[in-house]
Nucleic acid binder design. Structure first.
Length: 869
RNA sequence: GCCCGCGUGGUGGAAUUGGUAGACACGAGGGACUUAAAAUCCCUUUCCUGAAUCAGGAGUGCCGGUUCGAGUCCGGCCGCGGGCACCA
């Protein structure tokens, strides 16, 4: 038996043993007996071709949870698959002429081999790729069910259009107003697109966030902000001038500040408002204004820089509460068509945007809220001067704080909240409006003009319109013979794929050429893992008990999946009462690395750099290297680390151990060579510990009972601490405990044979605690001390409560809150006994001399504090 | 601008309900073993003061408060990170 542990020999051997024993296959519900179920899932990867270290961290975390649950007696489902549709495959096709499917499946094979080397406890029997026709066929069936239920619709919407690639781009793909691939200036186009009615569930998606107790607060907040509920008044302003054609009824607006209605000074319409559009048809100047507004980019930076511009339409509406007063109707670029009604009433005194606009166009500023109830209306000490007309020189910004209503007739003296209610009541009574809730959340546009995605399973028939593809004709398969020569959607250019017949009338028809946004694919894969087609088995496994993935999916993926499981439930496809797919969520941090830059500005790979003390030197040239900030690993900065290289050099266990140690899982961890070497050293240290126990025992030595008891205490306490640390996702703490445990075992090794039995017991427990983290090493150690079978199949060690409590405790003694001494007392000592013993301590005499004791606080088992004066 | 989160040694971090601040690890320094190196093992490592394995003082971003006792709770600042953002 070798003195050194060799992961290259041991790791493949144990993986074979696990495969042979079929250890990680989830049991069907009927075979699970009394075992409770645990569905552990990590976000499945996009098959880019290479695993990166971030994946290693993500999957190592999931594996700790899955293996721990298994050891605790759960029937565990821990599957893996591939999020396989998407742009990179098409890019590869365009750049290298390889078919997206060929490229994707080759990548899957390569990555699966890498996955295998990590020793994860995955049930590969449920593997699939979302580009498998069986998978996307099922997705098409769901799409049609949603359509039947009215959850799908088509409408024209503005999209980012790349005129070179001839495709729609997501907002993330538009960089500084240009397409990320082509570099062409992106245009706004109106296209008819498919949408999912996610907004139907807006309220429920918001409400149920409160029930997701095992989700990070941060993610819940982000989703709540994204859904963006706001309550207010939707009301109508009626004309005080000849009404424009087709808009005779007036203008509907939405406001969250109905309390400021008396301070209204103008109406602002979005440039995209139907009324603006209609008026522009007759007024070239307004048309030019609209064109000007459309020019601005959609990026955040553009919006921030954009100056407020407006156009006076010349129309006027009546103020509903101030007889005889009228308000001008403007079109303004800061009003969005996509929110509320696309029109607002502006109260410049109490809204900064309205204020800026009013200043620019010399519109009235009419304050109707004063900051404090007591201050007289015209008191300059209020910080506001109550200018009623003109440009409001005295106000430098809008007042949006709390206060009391004034200059508002009956509402004077009311609080803002009371005035809001009064306004809503008043408008309801006049039949002009009502309380309304608005959401920031928009319906989900799912159309993509792409080849490598799930085809939308409908046909367009000249006489029947849009017709669903019948169930027996699913899946609608992507054509294999496809060309990427022409820019744009290959499905449109394909010679005959889209040509078909109408399922209803049998006449000529065309297939829909849009494919589904790839977020659809990841919105229900967890249900598919639970079972391909058995609803009861899906009900058994769902919801996912522990989901693990990156925080970058906090909104989109996690929100879409929550929508999908509700929609699936409502079309009778899923038995999930509250519609929540993920009961527990953990978002892990990234793996970062220092960046290195040569004198001439080239980025250098970590392997090209040698560190000497504080100095970094380029190996090839011997020149000094600038060590840059620690950043997320990226190819452009060359600060990536290849997991394969690490595994070949140190083994998978070392890589797993390193990415879980030191930093708390939710935080970023910095990859360092020294840290990896430290992890590798620890593997050897553990190995030597077990090896010394595998040597033949010396005879005839009496047992050292006190030392044995100490060691057993260490083992049982550590087991307990590791157990709860894993359950609470404090893997770094679990690892610190194991370090400490091993240090204690090393000390016991020096004591030797007289504590052999305790060392063996401790080692057996340690091997089982190590298993979720470093399973291969744990197997080798388990075998080394003669334990039967596989430790991966062994139950979690029981911590005996008898060893968790000490007979005596060491209490710190404070005088006026400062620690001055400590005493050892029996666990059973009463506070009085502790107090008496503490006061008698000679160490304390100098601190008590000449002072009177006012109080003695004894917290049993914790601390003694003597208060003196 | 709005909404979250976080500030602890040279570094990553620990301290779970207010109860010995700095566990554990990395790095650094010193030592043992060795012909030498690797490997391994041992010691030191928050700061300041002192006749210095001891004693005293300070210390968890800053200022203040509550408490016998605050890294932890409260108020106000400062700094960093993240999310959203003409959302009416």
């Amino acid at each position: 038996m070798s003195e050194r542990y060799d992961p290259q020999l041991a790791e493949p051997k144990w993986r074979e043993a696990w495969a042979e024993a079929d250890l990680f296959r989830a049991l069907p519900p009927a075979e699970a007996g009394d075992a409770p179920k645990a569905y552990v899932l990590e976000m499945f990867p996009y098959p880019s071709g290479r695993l990166h270290v971030g994946h290693v961290r993500n999957y190592a975390m999931g594996d700790v949870v899955a293996r721990h649950k298994k050891a605790k007696g759960y029937n565990v489902l821990h599957p893996m698959g591939w999020d396989a549709f998407g742009m990179p495959a098409e890019n590869a096709a365009m750049e290298r002429g390889v078919h997206p499917g060929t490229w994707t499946y080759a990548n899957i094979a390569a990555m699966k081999a890498q996955f295998h080397k990590l020793g994860l406890s995955l049930d590969w029997s449920r593997e699939f790729a979302t580009c498998d026709p069986e998978y996307y066929g099922e997705q098409q069936r769901l799409f049609l069910k949603f359509m039947e239920k009215g959850l799908v619709y088509r409408k024209a919407s503005k999209v980012n259009w790349d005129p070179v690639d001839q495709t729609v781009l997501a907002n993330e793909q538009v960089i500084d107003g240009r397409g990320w691939r082509s570099g062409a200036v992106v245009e706004q186009r109106d296209l008819t697109q498919w949408f999912f009615r996610i907004t139907d569930y807006a309220q429920d998606l918001l409400d149920k966030l409160d029930t997701l107790e095992r989700w990070p607060e941060k993610v819940r907040t982000m989703q709540a902000n994204w859904i963006g509920r706001s309550e207010g008044l939707q009301m109508r302003f009626e004309w005080a001038c000849p009404a424009p054609e087709e808009f005779e009824a007036g203008i509907d607006i939405f406001t969250t500040r109905p309390d400021t209605l008396h301070g209204a000074s103008f109406i602002a319409l979005s440039p995209d408002h139907p009324l603006t559009e209609a008026l522009a048809g007759r007024d070239p100047d307004l048309a030019a204004f609209r064109a000007l507004c459309a020019q601005g980019g959609t990026s955040e930076a553009d919006i921030e820089k954009a100056e407020k511009i407006g156009f006076d339409t010349g129309l006027r509406v009546a103020h509903p509460l101030r007889p005889g007063e009228t308000l001008p109707v403007w079109s303004a670029n800061f009003v969005l068509m996509g929110y509320g009604t696309g029109a607002i009433f502006a109260c410049p005194a109490h809204d900064q945007r309205d204020f800026d606009f009013a200043r620019k166009y010399d519109l009235p500023v009419l304050p109707v809220v004063r900051p404090s109830a007591s201050a007289p209306a015209a008191d300059p000490a209020d910080g506001l001067s109550w200018v009623v007309t003109g440009a409001g020189e005295e106000m430098t910004e809008a007042y949006t704080g709390p206060g009391t209503i004034m200059k508002s007739g009956d509402w004077d003296g009311l609080s803002i909240d009371a005035a809001k209610s009064a306004a809503i009541e008043a408008m309801s009574a006049r039949g002009l409006g009502s309380r309304t809730v608005n959401f920031r959340l928009r319906d989900w546009g799912v159309s993509r003009q792409r080849y490598w995605g799930c085809p939308i399973p409908v046909v367009h028939c000249a006489s029947c319109g849009i017709v669903a593809v019948p169930a027996e004709a699913l899946p609608v398969r992507l054509p294999e013979d496809v060309s990427f020569e022409t820019p744009g959607n290959p499905l449109v250019h394909h010679p005959d794929w889209k040509t078909t017949t109408c399922p209803d009338c049998g006449g000529e028809a065309e297939r829909e050429t849009d494919t589904l946004d790839t977020f659809n694919d990841s919105s229900w894969y967890f249900a598919r893992f639970a079972s391909a087609d058995d609803r009861e088995e899906r009900a058994y496994w769902l919801p996912v008990d522990q989901y693990v993935g990156g925080v970058e999916h906090a909104v989109l993926h996690l929100l879409y999946a929550r929508f999908f499981s509700r929609a699936m439930r409502d079309v009778g496809e899923l038995d999930l009462a509250d519609g929540e797919p993920f009961a527990g969520l953990f978002t892990q941090g990234m793996v970062t690395h220092a960046t290195f830059r040569a004198g001439d500005g080239r980025w250098l790979q970590p392997a090209e750099v040698e560190l000497h003390g504080g100095q970094a030197i380029e190996r090839a040239t011997g020149q000094a290297v600038t060590v840059g900030p620690v950043e997320k690993m990226s190819k452009s900065k060359k600060n990536t680390v290849d997991p394969d290289a690490i595994i070949s050099e140190f083994g998978a266990d070392t890589a797993r151990w390193f990415v879980l140690s030191d930093s708390p899982p939710e935080r970023d961890v910095e990859w360092t060579q020294a840290g990896v070497e430290g992890a590798a050293r620890f593997m050897q240290r553990v190995w030597s510990l077990f090896r010394s126990l595998s040597l033949p025992a010396a005879d005839g030595l009496a047992e050292d009972e006190a030392a044995s008891l100490d060691l057993r205490r260490v083992a049982h306490k550590a087991t307990r601490a590791i157990d709860s640390a894993i359950e609470e996702f404090r893997f770094n703490s679990a690892i610190a405990t194991m370090h400490d445990w091993v240090n204690q075992m090393k000390k016991a090794e020096q004591i030797g044979e007289s504590v052999r039995n305790a060392r063996l017991e401790s080692a057996s427990m340690l091997a089982r605690c190590l298993t979720p983290f470093v399973p291969h090493l744990a197997e080798s150690c388990w075998t080394l001390i003669g334990q039967p079978g596989l430790v991966s199949a062994a139950p979690w060690p029981e911590a005996d409560p008898a060893f968790l409590v000490e007979d005596s405790v060491t209490l710190p003694i404070q005088v006026n809150g400062k620690r001055r001494a400590e005493i050892a007392v029996a666990k059973t000592a009463t506070p009085d006994m502790v107090e008496a013993k503490a006061l008698a301590l000679p160490d304390l005499a100098p601190h008590l001399e000449g002072k009177s004791i006012k109080k003695v606080i004894v917290v049993p088992g914790r601390i003694v504090n003597i208060v003196v004066a």
